[in-house]
Amino acid sequence: MSKNSNLELFRRGIPQELIFIFLTVFSVFLLVIDTKTTWLDTVRQTLSLSLYPAQKAVMSPRDVVLWGQGVMNAAELIQNENEALQRRRIELAQVASTAAQLSTENAQLRRLLGMQNDKNERPALVAEILYEAPTPFNRRLIFDRGALDGVAPGMPVIDEGGLVGQIVRVTPMSSEAALLTDEVVSIPVQLGRTGLRLIAFGSNYAGKIEVRYFESDADIKPGDLLFTSGIGGAYPPGLTVGRIDTVDRDATSGFARAIVTPASHPDRYRHFLILRNVPSAVQNTTPTAANPVKVPSSVKTTNVPLTNPTGDARARRSNN
């Protein structure tokens, strides 16, 4: 201890213990504010903007390697892609002719019934994954398009398989999408075979989603396809959501639930489409625990908000 030739005979400045207590309390305070409200979003956006150059710089080697690989294997890649596209074109030609026929028929029937014709235009934006969120609490993807590109919370994200998730938070340069498997996402869906309306939630099983609150004698079988129903307005109708894996019928409660494998592959590719038709219901309100999205009368029996993009899981549970 005699070696300890520090000039400070007495400790000056604020004691470490006080700093520790202050910072701990402040962290917990921030945590509470940030999980319960959206007040800190501007702080997050500012910090995120300052982080963006560092993120881009760190990711640049990966981009260079990918670009290099692309250049090296360009011929082979293009050939493979061309073959796949040719196949797809033939498949789609048939589908397109049927679709055209169906859409004229549909329009005619709608006219006959006097229904409004909903516009099926979906202006979209291609976004690339910046990175995947490294947190066990959420299943999120961060894209390189933000508010400056016209991305807004509530917009659905799709890939070639189907619905991937929903944009939940936007910063000027980037945006954050909750995957279908995230706890906070709930999607109004429809069974392709029978037209049964259901609601799909994120599940505890890794990479799966769950359909809950339907009667145990409902006509659902493994292998059935689920599509978005368009109810609630957050998602356009007709996007593929997934395929039923197993149906778990509980005779005692009278309700059943089914495990669904999503049709999209958020872990496979880097490019996704953000659909820009934000419905008016989601555009202006940010649903939180205090202010959940209004539930349309058609799904009132389940009493669950259709979407809860920025709120926490508890908001949904308190409603169950």
């Binding site: 910072l23 701990t24 402040f26 962290s27 917990v28 305070f29 921030l30 945590l31 504010i33 940030d34 999980t35 800190l40 702080v43 997050r44 910090l47 995120s48 982080l51 993120q55 969120a133 490294p134 947190t135 609490f137 959420n138 999120r140 961060i142 938070r169 954050e176």
Partner: peptide
């Protein structure tokens, strides 16, 4: 901010 965790988680 980077890991889209609630603000304060890693700080704490």
């Amino acid at each position: 901010v980077q890991s889209v965790a609630p603000l304060g988680q890693h700080a704490l």
